[in-house]
Simulated assay, not measured.
Amino acid sequence: MTVVAVALVDPQRRVLLQQRSPGRAMAGLWEFPGGKVEPGELPEAALIRELDEELGIAVPAPALTPACFASAAVGGRHMILLLYICRAWTGEPRPLDASALKWLRLHEMDPDEMPPADRPLLAMLDALIGST
């Protein structure tokens, strides 16, 4: 299973996290926005679609920079999580498919409050965008 996610980075180098809704797997945990890549779909196209569906924002494909990936077992399946960095979008992110949103600097994020696949991405993101 291939999943795409994004670190939306604002001018203050804060990153947007969304809280998983009640009733979903890992409800209440904070994650990078994104979702599953559908069969035949390019990862960037999937991420653009997911960001529109989940946050109501428009992201141009050139604004997505591949950053890093994680590999994890999820239930009885294996997931490859592709993380992109994005610094340009249109619209104000809204929690359309999440309980809440919050902007944090990387050093403010608590890995214990995130899904296991997102946790190893924090150190890699820190190396790419910095935490302060």
Rank of each mutant, 00 (worst) to 15 (best):
F32G: 00
E108Q: 09
P111W: 02
G40I: 01
L83F: 01
S71Y: 15
L83M: 09
L17P: 08
A73F: 08
V3P: 05
L16S: 07
A7T: 03
A27M: 10
W103G: 10
Q12N: 13
R77M: 12
G56A: 08
P66K: 04
A88G: 13
P115C: 07
L83P: 06
G34V: 00
G56E: 12
A100R: 10
D52K: 12
R77H: 13
A98D: 11
L55P: 09
A98W: 12
R13V: 14
E53M: 09
T2D: 10
T132V: 15
F32E: 00
D52F: 15
L128V: 02
E92M: 06
E53D: 12
A61Q: 13
V4G: 07
G91R: 01
A61Y: 09
S99R: 11
C86I: 00
T65Y: 14
S99E: 15
D110I: 09
V74Q: 11
G56Q: 07
H78W: 07
W89T: 01
L81E: 12
M114G: 01
W89N: 02
L42S: 14
M1E: 07
L51R: 02
G23P: 01
G28L: 11
R94V: 07
V9P: 04
Q12S: 14
V59K: 08
A98C: 13
G40E: 01
G130K: 04
L125Q: 04
L125A: 06
H107F: 11
R49D: 08
G23T: 06
S131N: 15
A25C: 05
A63M: 12
D126V: 11
A88N: 10
G28D: 08
M79S: 08
R94E: 15
G23H: 08
D118M: 01
M1H: 01
E53I: 09
D118L: 03
G23R: 11
D97T: 02
L16C: 07
V3R: 04
R119T: 02
G28F: 04
P62R: 15
P120T: 06
L55A: 12
V15F: 01
Q12P: 10
D110R: 13
I129A: 05
K102L: 07
H78Y: 03
